[in-house]
């Protein structure tokens, strides 16, 4: 693994770093909005992976001349990954929007968007349920 290998794959290194950062934020942050931001970074990293692999050495923008006289010697960049990623961007936006909408609703119902506080509230709800229903089943629970 020499220097040129490292520099030549800089897009991919950045992809890996960005992806892992996003994943880390999702796991490590307790704030629900921050988790969505992390998720978004994670998805954005994938866009970078796809766009990088569409690049062809010495390739130009994949736009045919208007007269459609295509010079076979011209090398074009592969546009397909870009198109795929357009779809993935739309998916990412929809996911972010839905996630944030859920956070708004959670804030309305729980009064907080901190994961540990929500968990505490839910733990109380669950142990209350277990107490009532455990006793009703004849156990000590």
């Amino acid at each position: 693994m020499d220097w040129s290998f490292f520099v030549g794959h800089v897009n991919y290194w950045l992809f890996v770093v960005l992806m892992m950062t996003g994943l880390y934020v999702v796991v490590a942050k307790g704030n629900l909005v921050k988790k969505i931001v992390g998720l978004n970074m994670f998805q954005t990293a994938v866009f970078m992976l796809y766009i990088s692999m569409g690049k062809v050495h010495g390739g130009t923008a994949p736009i045919f001349p208007t007269d459609m006289k295509i010079d076979p010697a011209t090398v074009y960049t592969n546009p397909l990954p870009h198109v795929l990623i357009l779809t993935a961007i739309v998916v990412g936006i929809a996911t972010t929007a839905l996630g944030l909408a859920l956070v708004v609703r959670i804030r309305e119902e729980y009064g907080t968007i901190e994961e540990d506080e929500i968990l505490e509230i839910e733990q109380d709800m669950a142990s209350e349920e277990n107490r009532i229903h455990g006793q009703a089943m004849g156990g000590r629970a």
Binding site: M19, V26, L49, A88, T95, L98, I106, E109, E122, M125
Partner: peptide
């Protein structure tokens, strides 16, 4: 109200799953 946090958790995990899938496809 726990349906909201359940949906949120599923959204986070489901999206990670789908994104892993799309990395595989890439």
């Amino acid at each position: 109200r726990r349906a909201l946090t359940a949906a949120y958790d599923y959204l986070v995990m489901g999206t990670i799953g789908a994104t892993f899938f799309v990395i595989g496809l890439g």
